[in-house]
């Protein structure tokens, strides 16, 4: 199902429009953290319940056993009801999952229906075996789509919904590099014929310029030299620092694209 070489943590979904898109799967790590956050919230609820019970017992001692009885049932309801209620209410999310940007969906990319939510959450009793979700975690790590037993039975997957790309197209544009290149260098490069470079190669250069700040210094230097050398090998370019050369190449290319667009009008 996955293309060779593609990230195996992606689930491909073909829409009825025959467009393929991908969801990123949530791994055991983020799911465990989400579960711990939920556990914390459940614990908090139980502590509140406990305090209320204590106060009730303190005021009317004869009621002690009744209060404990009611608290026992209430604690049970909170423990089992919490994930079911939230996954229905927040469409496949619990507060823990939301804070980690995770969401449960059905395998075809659909939202969950109530019976599916009930099935996957009641199966926690098996995933939990022998203690602390051991079985569920082992199954999850061995399965290609990081499913615990409840996910297998209900046909659900957990995806990572909050990706950098979900910030919006506006955020995307602000990340377009504005190469720090001087006019002279650009003009010289265009004269050298750099604008005839393969667009795919320029794409790689732009990608490097966009990401260079997140690289370690030596990786950044090595990549810059590698990319710049491949340009230098084919074109007569003025000597300059590798990164500046790359920025200038990108600028020269962009200038050409803009010129072509301006000249041809806006007909697509």
């Amino acid at each position: 199902m996955d293309d060779a070489g593609r990230n195996a943590d992606l689930v491909r979904i073909e829409t009825p429009e025959h467009v393929v898109f991908e969801y990123e799967l949530a791994g055991p790590g983020s799911r465990v953290i989400a579960a711990l956050i939920d556990l914390l919230l459940i614990g908090l609820c139980l502590v509140v319940l406990f305090v209320i019970a204590l106060l009730a017992v303190g005021s009317v001692y004869e009621l002690a056993a009744y209060v404990v009885a009611a608290a026992t049932v209430a604690a049970f309801v909170i423990l089992w009801g919490y994930p079911i209620f939230f996954e229905l209410w927040m469409r496949g999310q619990t507060p823990g999952k939301r804070s980690m940007g995770l969401r449960v969906i059905q395998e075809g990319g659909y939202a969950l229906s109530p019976p599916v939510v009930i099935a996957r959450n009641l199966l926690r009793i098996v995933d939990f075996l022998p203690a602390a979700y051991f079985l569920g975690l082992v199954v999850m790590m061995l399965s290609r789509r990081y499913k615990r037993i409840g996910d297998f039975v209900a046909g659900t997957i957990v995806i990572r919904e909050r990706t950098p790309a979900s910030e919006g197209v506006a955020a995307l544009e602000s990340k377009v590099p504005v190469p720090a290149a001087n006019e002279e260098a650009v003009a010289e490069l265009r004269r050298a014929g750099v604008h005839r470079l393969d667009p795919a190669e320029v794409r790689i250069i732009e990608d490097f310029l966009r990401r260079k700040r997140s690289m370690t210094p030596e990786a950044r230097r090595r990549l810059a030299n590698q990319l710049a050398d491949s340009v230098r090998r084919r074109f007569e370019v003025p000597p300059m620092d590798s990164e500046r050369l790359l920025a200038s190449v990108a600028a020269a290319f962009r200038r050409d694209a803009e010129a072509a667009e301006g000249g041809a009008g806006s007909a697509p």
């Binding site: 979904i13 829409t15 898109f21 991908e22 969906i105 969950l112 790309a165 979900s166 197209v169 990608d207």
Partner: peptide, 21 residues
């Protein structure tokens, strides 16, 4: 690539809510 990622995310986000039970 990040434009493809953006469109992929947008389609995924709406798909999930459109094709729902």
């Amino acid at each position: 690539p990040d434009l493809v990622d953006y469109l992929n995310g947008l389609v995924g986000r709406v798909h999930f809510r459109l094709y729902t039970a």
